[in-house]
Design a binder for these strands. Structure first.
Length: 781
RNA sequence: GGGUGAUUAGCUCAGUUGUGGCGAGAGCAUCUGCCUUACAAGCAGAGGGUCAUAGGUUCGAAUCCUAUAUCACCCACCA
């Protein structure tokens, strides 16, 4: 049995691929281009299992397309801009960005990234992801900054980007606005308290239920449904807010639900999205009491500077002691939190930048429909998301580490001065601009662009590296389903706005990796690292596992599946060993034995199925077709059948077997090459390269069909052959005999005449001393 | 509340879309054998399923239609 050191083999082959530039995009080639808009992973130190899973899947496609004759454009990028990077640097370098100068912090980020990025990328190379790593971008590098700013200005000049003071979704932890797409749900226990307001005119109690009593100071109105017979006569009067004692109008509003709470609700600036909407609808003057850091701004009260939750319990105490609470119960409700901080979001009126998208909903949906989604139903998620959009796309962030928004403001005439294209990339804080009309110094914009505002132009970034020879739409976008509402949505939006075109023709959506049905997460402690797996079983085993799930389906981590991959590797090594043990290479197609011909026709079916499956991005079917053929038809049956001829046949019989074994094995490893690139390359280098002449199996051509027509009678003959072999094996098993036990085989006349062309092989594989005509029987000697 | 997907052997999943069809498949696990000159981390064989439930269409349904249940994900709900 051939022993190989998998780690050593992997290293050797990686070096080969790199040295020979196997995955280089050929700029001069006339072949059709297949372009992939590769997801740039967020630099985080190490690749995790979810990455390994989805990048394997997209790589199956890339490798197949390369073998199928396409000039595959498969660039690589890293996402290292924005909050996740800030967090990473703060953690690893033990610093706080807000307590450093912007310049200082940015240079620390860039320096650290330079240190850790190569090692990070190595994980992708190890996994065998066949990108052309020389076509590389980072979402913070100079070129990307220039492009991102250029495309910002492009939209700004067209009036599609605007700046507005508006209550935006605000995260008090990172102290920055965030986008609707970056919110998550979180179930929380809270107190639902009914408190007493007073009606000014009548001095009667007005009961209002709330979960946010700390916002009483921000109360600007009270709503009652005009149809609410209990209270509608109060509409038009004034209410007195408890504790704070200011007057607010009692307004009639149909959106107030009679059944909910007490039927009366208070409007505060800003408790939630409803408040934002209510205040703008009734043109109320907001009373903003929240600071950016999540503390309250209520000077001359005991609540000043308290954090929201502290203020809540303090105010509840005070209400209680003033006997202003009539009812209180514990409820569990769902709140929106920022996905990166886990902290409840607030609404704060700040000046922010937005890309207009609400007016484009129908166009964005119809454009999305032009893209082929795999699986198809993922389009619904995209559509559903767009339909539910309430806000324009918030793109500015009040952070240090991001791409600066290239504008200045003149305080006097209130105009915005933007950078010129030739100045890009530019950090407005390091350049002084004078307002041409007012002749005074302007103020630089200190906000930066959100990461998505840049990663949404990855097709443009990669194309730019290639001097725009790669055209939009790309062939393919691969990504996971959790970022349909962000990355896919934003990329489509930008492409429509800038290019008036969809960004890609196809999009493939991969699922998640779960552990016993649960999402893997560090907090649950059920995380498996891909490095751990590949160390133990090799990269191919991991990829073999990743290929077992269909697109869009979550895959549960099962060690036994990884083990199955390992078994495949061992098996194909052994099979190859047998094939080449005695083989003499056939330069010409010899006269084929009927069995060999039949077998190759069976192989044709597999080639057809696998090719079709790969063309539909159904790599899991392609793999199982090839894998099944290898295991069931090639190893378990064909190899057993030809053994006798290989050892004892005439020259002609041997030649036919040699040719067929060689061709079939080559076809099998070609079909498996996209899935398990290492072992197939190893075998190619060892045994096939000298005859086939390509530098690597990964630039070999995808298998084509063998000559000969598969017909019903051919299938019938092959199936009968296998049927009889199986029958004999059954009888031997039943009799607890060895498989080499001698037999006398009796076949009905019909079968005997059908099997005539392959009778010699049948006799040898069943080890029959004779094959007789008569009633079907297997006589063991 | 809206949307989407899933439900097939002990476990993990194919098969279902545009063509419904003779006995429903695989891997793992279980059981019984076999050292057979590629492979015992292997080979050969066996057992195991009312295809979630209830109706309907049909000569015939895992597959098409209608409900229902359970699970998962996304969105909305935050007084």
């Amino acid at each position: 049995m051939p022993e190989i050191d998998i780690k050593e083999m992997e290293k050797k082959l990686r070096d080969l691929w790199e040295r020979e530039g196997i995955y280089r995009f050929d700029r001069k080639s006339k072949q059709k281009i297949y372009s992939i808009d590769t997801p740039p992973p967020t630099v985080s130190g190490k690749m995790h299992i979810g990455h390994a899973f989805s990048y394997s899947q997209q790589d199956f496609i890339a490798r197949y397309k390369r073998m199928a004759g396409f000039n595959v454009f498969y660039p690589f990028g890293t996402d290292d801009n924005g909050l996740p990077t800030e967090k990473l640097i703060e953690k690893t370098k033990n610093v706080k960005s807000k307590s450093m100068s912007r310049e200082e912090f940015i240079s620390l980020c860039l320096k650290t990234l330079k240190e850790i990025t190569p090692e990070f990328i190595q994980d992708w190379k190890n996994l065998g992801v066949s990108c052309d790593y020389s076509i590389y971008y980072s979402t913070i590098d100079k070129n990307t900054q220039r492009l991102s700013q250029k495309y910002f200005l492009h939209l700004y000049k067209k009036g599609k980007i605007y700046k507005k003071e508006f209550p935006t979704i605000w995260d008090t932890e990172f102290q920055t606005p965030v986008a609707q797409a970056e919110l998550e749900d979180k179930t929380q226990d809270t107190l639902f308290t009914t408190l007493k307001f007073k009606v000014k005119e009548t001095n009667q109690d007005l009961l209002i239920a709330t979960t946010r009593p700390e916002l009483l100071g921000a109360c600007v109105a009270v709503f009652i449904n005009p149809k609410d017979k209990r209270y509608n006569k109060l509409i038009g009067k004034k209410a007195i807010v408890p504790i704070f004692n200011h007057e607010v109008p009692i307004l009639g509003d149909e959106s107030a639900e009679i059944e909910k709470g007490t039927g009366i609700l208070m409007i505060c600036s800003y408790g939630d999205k409803y408040d934002v909407d209510a205040i703008s609808r009734h043109k109320l003057k907001p009373r903003v009491i929240l600071n950016k850091d999540g503390t309250l701004n209520l000077p001359n009260t005991q609540y000043n500077h308290l954090r929201v939750k502290q203020a809540r319990s303090k105010i509840l105490e005070d209400l209680k002691s003033h006997n202003l609470i009539t009812d209180q119960k514990k409820i569990s409700h769902i709140v929106n939190v920022y996905e990166k901080s886990g902290v409840e979001i607030e609404f704060l009126p700040t000046e922010q930048w937005f890309i207009k998208i609400l007016d484009k909903k129908p166009l964005l949906i119809s454009s999305g429909k032009k893209i082929k989604w795999h699986p198809e139903h993922m389009f619904k998620r995209y559509e559903n998301w767009i339909k539910g959009l309430d806000w324009d796309w918030s793109i500015s962030r009040e952070r240090h580490f991001g791409i600066p928004i290239p504008v200045w403001h003149c305080r006097k005439c209130n105009t915005i001065i933007h950078a010129e294209e030739k100045e890009l990339p530019i950090d407005p804080t390091s350049t002084k601009k004078v307002c041409k009309t007012c002749k005074i110094a302007t103020e630089p914009e200190t906000k930066v662009l959100d990461t998505w505002a840049t990663s949404s132009i990855t097709p443009q970034i990669s194309s730019h590296i290639m001097n725009n020879t790669i055209k939009i739409p790309y062939s393919l976008r691969p990504q996971a389903h959790d970022i349909i509402r962000t990355w896919a949505f934003y990329t489509i939006t930008r492409s429509i706005l800038h290019e008036k075109s969809i960004p890609w023709n196809d999009i493939i959506i991969s699922g998640f990796v779960t552990m016993q049905g649960e999402k893997m997460s560090k907090s649950k402690g059920n995380v498996i690292s891909p490095q751990e797996i590949t160390e133990k079983y090799g990269v191919d085993s991991l990829r073999y596992w990743a290929s077992s799930s269909k697109l869009g389906e979550d895959l549960d981590y099962q060690e036994k599946e990884i083990l199955a991959g390992k078994k495949f590797i061992t098996k194909i090594l052994n099979a190859t060993n047998f094939v080449f043990m005695n083989l003499q290479h056939q330069n010409k197609i010899p006269k084929l034995h009927p069995t060999d011909e039949l077998f190759l026709l069976q192989l044709n079916k597999t080639i057809k199925e696998a090719t079709e499956a790969f063309n539909q991005y159904n790599y899991s079917k392609a793999k199982s077709e090839a894998d099944n053929f290898f295991w069931k038809i090639f190893a378990d049956n064909y190899m057993e059948i030809v053994k006798y001829r290989v050892y004892n046949g005439t020259e002609e019989e041997k030649a036919s077997a040699y040719y067929t074994l060689y061709q079939a094995l080559l076809t099998i490893i070609k079909m498996m090459a996209p899935i398990t690139p290492y072992i197939t390359e190893h075998l190619y280098q060892e045994h096939f390269k000298k005859y086939e002449g390509k530098k690597s199996i990964h630039i070999e051509s995808w298998p084509t069909l063998f000559k000969g027509k598969s017909s019903k009678s051919e299938d019938e003959l092959w199936n009968k052959l296998i049927e009889v072999i199986t029958l004999v094996r059954q009888e031997k098993s039943k009799a607890q005999k060895s498989m080499k036990a001698e037999t006398i085989l009796t076949l009905p006349k019909k079968d005997l005449s059908l099997l005539k062309p392959v009778l010699d092989d049948l006799q040898h594989v069943t080890n029959s001393t004779q094959i007789k005509e008569g009633k079907l029987s297997v006589e063991l000697l």
